[in-house]
Design a protein around this nucleic acid. Structure first.
Length: 763
DNA sequence: GAGCAAAAGTTTTTT
DNA sequence: ACTTTTGCTC
C-alpha cells in the first residue's frame, strides 16, 4: 500500500503502526458530512400492490395498464403517487427512466394533464429523446403530439433557449430573440479573437477555458503558477459586451439569462416539473427549477446520489439533502437492481457507506469481482488481446466487452495495440465537428446566414483553410475593425460583405457567397417547403468538383442538410427562419448534425471509454484498466473536501456497468506520472470472499518484469519506424541512441524520449 | 530580451 | 512525462 501520502493526508500520528487502515481513516474523516444518505425514516414504502389502480386504468387505457403491470410495487408507488412533491431515490439499474416515462403517461392520460403543462428536464439529449420517443410510441394514430406540444420536454439548456427566446424582457439584456449559441469550441475561438483584437496579455492562453471555470467558482483571477496579474479581468468585461453585440450566448449564459428573466417575469408556469438525473443538478439549474414553480406546482424528481460524479461541474449533493430536509416532500426509493449479478453488486455496495442496505439484487449470484495485476499498460493490452479473442470465440459480441479507464490519456496505447493485433475497437468519446472540416464549415455558414451578427461564424466561413479565401489572424481582424470603424452597417454580415468587396474584389466567389448569406432568410421564407440549400449557396463551387474529396464532402453535406430538413419537418413552430435557427441551435447543443436520432454506439468493436462516458450504459463484460492508487482516486494538487468520495462513487459506477463479469486491473510499474505502484486502496473496502485475485508474487516484483519493455531497449527503435504516441499521435523515429529516441510528430515537431520508458508503440 | 533552471501545473465531460 | 510560468543572470 503506497500509504505515506495517505498518512500525510490524514495527519495520522502513528503512521508506522501496522494496524493503521487508510480506509477507516477515510471513512471516519468523511462521516460528519455524509450527504449521500437518505435516512430510513424519511422513506415512504409501498404498502399494497396497486392491482386495483392498474385495473382502473385498464378500463380506459388497456395498453397503459398492460405496461404498468410489468412494474414492481416500488415503481408503481411512484407512478400512482398523488403527492405534490416527490423525490425518487433510484438505485443504479433500477429502471428509473421507465418510471419517469410511465409517470408522464399516467399524468397525461389518466390525470388529463396536457403535455404543454409539463416541464420535463433532462441533462442529456439522449435522455430527452428517449423519453419523447417512448411517449410518442404510446399514441395509436388518432392524435400524435407534435414538437410544439412537447416543447418543454428537453435538456435544461434546450428549454432555457426556448424560454429565453419567448421572454418579453430579453432585449433588456441586450439580446434579440434570434440569438445563437456558442458551443465550447466557438466559445474558445470567441475569446481568442477578443484577445487578438484588443491586444490583451493573457497567460495560460490555451488553458483559458479552465481559467474561466475556476474564475466562475472561486472568483480567482490568478491561475496555476501565476504570481502577477494579466489582462484577464478586462477580457471578462469585454466578453460580456461582445456577446451582446454579436447576439450570442454560451451554454452557461443560457441558464443564467433564463434565471435573470424568470426572476423578473415568470413567463411560463407549468403544472408539473419533472426532472431526470436530479443528482447532477447544479446551483443554477436548481434556481431555474424554482423560477418555474410556485407553491402549487407539482414536482417529481428522479436521481441517484451514489452516481453523482459531476460535482466538479457544479452539481452538489446538498441539493438532494435540501429536498429531503423539506417536510413537504415525499421520499421514495427504487431499491431493486435488474442489471448486475448479485456477487458483483454486493462488492460494489461495499464502496458505498450505509447505503447498501437499500440496494437489492434480483439476479443470480454470478461471478466474483476479479482483480488482476499486470506489469504495465502495454502488457495488459497484450493480455486483453488474448483474452478478448477467447471471449469472442466463445460467443461474446465485441460490443458487450467494454474497457473502462479513469482518464482519456490511458486509452491511446490500448487503441494502438488493439489495432495492431486486429482486435476491433472503438473509442467512445465525443467527436467534435472541427475534425470534419466540411461539416464544420457548413455549420458556420448556416449559423452566419441565420445569425448575421455572429462575428466568429462569419470569420470562420471566410477563413476556413479548405473553403475560405482569407487567412485568419490579427491582420485580418484589425483590417476589418479599421474598415468598420467610422461606418454603420445593418449587421456584421453586411459589413463583412462590404469589406470583402472593397478590399478583396478578386475573391468574387466569396463576395457573392456573402450576398447569398445575407439574403438566406428571405430565401427560406419565400421559397416552398422543399428547400435546396445546396444549390442556393452553389456549394459545388466551394467543394471543387475536381478535388479528390469532392464525393465524400458532398455526401457529408447532403446528409447534414437532410438531417436539418427532417428536423424542420417535424412540425415546428414559428416562421422558417425561426425553425432553421432552432435546428442549428440543436446542432450546437449536441455538437453534431445527427439531431434526429443522436449518435449510436456503432456495433463495430470493443468500446474503450472513460468511466464518465460509460454512465448510463451496461455491458456483459467490463474491464477497468489501471486502477492504481493515484489514478482512482486521482492524485491532484488541489483536493476539495468531496474529492475522495466522488472518486469512490466513480469506482462504484464502473463496477455497476457490468451485467455478468467485472475485472479490475492495476499495474506494478505504471507509466502514469500520478500513479502509485499499488492497487486502488478503495478496493480494500470489499471483503475478500467477493474477490478473486490474480496477483503476481509481491516480493519479486522486479523479477516479474516482462521481456517486452526492458530487454530490447535500444534495439527496439529504429530510424524510420512508424510509431504512435498517446499524446502526439502518429510519428516517425528520426534517430535513436542509448540515451534518446528522437521522433518527429507532424505539427508537434520533434520530441525526444528515454528509450527505456518512451510511451511509444510501433505501428 | 534571451537564456536557463527551478517550480508548479496537469482530470473527468454534458450542454 | 511534458508544459508553462517565474525568477534569476547576463
Amino acid at each position: 500500500m503506497g500509504s505515506r501520502r495517505l498518512y500525510n493526508k490524514f495527519g495520522h500520528q502513528d503512521f508506522s503502526h501496522p494496524d493503521f487502515d487508510p480506509i477507516e481513516a477515510f471513512e471516519s474523516r468523511n462521516k460528519p458530512v455524509d450527504d449521500s444518505l437518505v435516512p430510513e425514516e424519511r422513506v415512504t414504502k409501498p404498502t399494497h400492490d396497486f392491482k386495483q389502480n392498474i385495473e382502473q386504468v385498464s378500463l380506459e387505457y388497456p395498453r397503459l395498464a398492460k405496461e404498468l403491470s410489468k412494474l414492481n410495487p416500488y415503481q408503481l408507488q411512484a407512478v400512482f403517487s398523488d403527492d405534490r412533491k416527490v423525490l425518487l431515490s433510484a438505485m443504479v439499474g433500477s429502471g428509473k427512466t421507465t418510471v419517469l416515462t410511465h409517470k408522464i403517461l399516467y399524468l397525461h392520460f389518466v390525470k388529463k394533464v396536457p403535455l404543454t403543462e409539463m416541464a420535463v428536464l433532462t441533462f442529456t439529449n439522449k435522455a430527452a429523446r428517449e423519453i419523447k420517443e417512448r411517449i410518442l410510441s404510446f399514441y395509436d394514430g388518432t392524435h400524435i403530439p407534435n414538437n410544439n406540444e412537447m416543447r418543454y420536454f428537453g435538456t435544461f439548456h434546450a428549454i432555457a433557449r426556448q424560454l429565453n427566446k419567448e421572454h418579453p424582457l430579453l432585449d433588456k439584456l441586450g439580446f434579440t430573440e434570434a440569438f445563437s449559441i456558442l458551443d465550447e469550441e466557438a466559445k474558445d475561438e470567441f475569446f481568442q479573437r477578443l484577445i487578438i483584437s484588443h491586444n490583451l496579455d493573457i497567460k495560460y492562453k490555451n488553458k483559458l477555458d479552465q481559467r474561466l471555470k475556476s474564475y466562475k467558482s472561486t472568483k480567482q483571477v490568478l491561475y496555476g503558477n501565476m504570481k502577477h496579474d494579466d489582462d484577464f479581468p478586462q477580457l471578462i468585461k469585454l466578453a460580456q459586451k461582445e456577446k451582446q453585440s454579436n447576439n450570442v450566448m454560451d451554454f452557461d449564459d443560457l441558464i443564467n439569462v433564463v434565471n435573470w428573466l424568470l426572476k423578473r417575469e415568470r413567463s411560463f408556469l407549468p403544472k408539473w416539473v419533472i426532472i431526470d438525473e436530479f443528482q447532477d443538478c447544479n446551483e443554477e439549474q436548481l434556481q431555474m427549477v424554482s423560477h418555474l414553480s410556485n407553491s402549487s406546482t407539482n414536482f417529481f424528481a428522479v436521481g441517484d446520489p451514489n452516481q453523482s460524479i459531476y460535482t466538479w461541474r457544479g452539481s452538489t449533493n446538498k441539493i438532494f439533502q435540501t429536498i429531503i430536509a423539506d417536510p413537504e416532500s415525499v421520499v421514495m426509493q427504487l431499491p431493486l437492481n435488474y442489471r448486475t449479478s448479485s456477487q458483483l453488486l454486493d462488492a460494489a455496495a461495499y464502496l458505498l457507506q450505509d447505503q447498501h442496505r437499500n440496494l437489492k439484487a434480483t439476479r443470480p449470484e454470478g461471478n466474483k469481482l476479479n482483480i488482476r495485476n499486470h506489469y504495465d499498460d502495454s502488457q495488459e493490452a497484450y493480455y486483453y488481446v488474448q483474452r478478448f479473442k477467447e471471449l469472442h470465440e466463445k460467443g461474446a459480441p465485441w460490443e458487450e466487452i467494454a474497457v473502462l479507464f479513469r482518464t482519456r490519456q490511458q486509452i491511446a496505447i490500448f487503441e494502438a495495440i488493439f489495432q495492431l493485433e486486429n482486435i476491433p475497437c472503438q473509442v467512445v468519446t465525443k467527436t467534435t465537428l472541427r475534425e470534419q472540416p466540411v461539416l464544420y464549415w457548413l455549420q458556420k455558414l448556416l449559423l452566419a446566414a441565420l445569425h448575421p451578427n455572429d462575428m466568429d461564424s462569419i470569420l470562420n466561413v471566410f477563413t476556413s483553410t479548405h473553403f475560405g479565401c482569407l487567412k485568419a489572424g490579427k491582420r485580418l481582424i484589425n483590417a476589418f475593425n479599421k474598415f468598420t470603424d467610422d461606418k454603420a452597417f445593418e449587421s456584421k454580415l453586411v459589413a463583412f460583405g462590404a469589406f470583402l468587396e472593397a478590399k478583396y474584389p478578386k475573391h468574387h466567389l466569396h463576395c457573392s457567397l456573402a450576398q447569398k448569406m445575407d439574403q438566406f432568410q428571405s430565401y427560406l421564407n419565400d421559397s416552398g417547403r422543399d428547400k435546396d440549400i445546396y444549390h442556393y449557396f452553389d456549394l459545388d463551387m466551394f467543394l471543387k468538383p475536381t478535388s479528390v474529396h469532392y464525393q465524400l464532402y458532398k455526401e457529408d453535406i447532403n446528409q447534414a442538410l437532410e438531417d436539418i430538413q427532417q428536423f424542420t419537418c417535424k412540425n415546428y413552430y414559428g416562421n422558417w427562419t425561426e425553425i432553421y435557427q432552432a435546428a442549428m441551435s440543436q446542432v450546437n447543443l449536441e455538437g453534431h448534425f445527427h439531431i434526429n436520432n443522436g449518435i449510436e454506439i456503432n456495433n463495430q468493436g470493443i468500446p474503450l471509454l472513460t468511466i464518465h462516458a460509460a454512465k448510463g450504459l451496461e455491458f456483459d463484460y467490463v474491464f477497468l484498466s489501471g486502477a492504481n492508487t493515484g489514478i482512482i482516486p486521482l492524485k491532484r494538487a488541489k483536493e476539495g473536501p468531496g474529492h475522495l468520495k466522488e472518486e469512490k462513487r466513480l469506482l462504484f459506477v464502473a463496477l455497476t456497468r457490468a451485467r455478468n463479469y467485472m475485472e479490475i486491473s492495476w499495474h506494478t510499474k505504471s507509466s502514469a506520472w500520478n500513479a502509485d505502484d499499488d492497487p486502488s486502496y478503495f478496493l480494500n473496502a470489499i471483503p475478500d470472499v467477493l474477490i478473486e485475485s490474480h496477483s503476481q508474487a509481491k516480493n519479486d516484483k522486479e523479477d516479474n518484469k516482462p521481456q517486452e519493455p526492458q530487454s530490447q531497449t535500444t534495439g527496439k527503435w529504429q530510424p524510420g519506424m512508424k510509431v504512435k504516441h498517446p499524446k502526439y499521435g502518429e510519428g516517425q523515429v528520426v534517430s535513436c541512441s542509448n540515451d534518446e529516441v528522437l521522433c518527429s510528430f507532424g505539427k508537434f515537431g520533434e520530441k525526444g524520449f528515454a528509450p527505456q520508458w518512451a510511451p511509444l508503440v510501433a505501428i
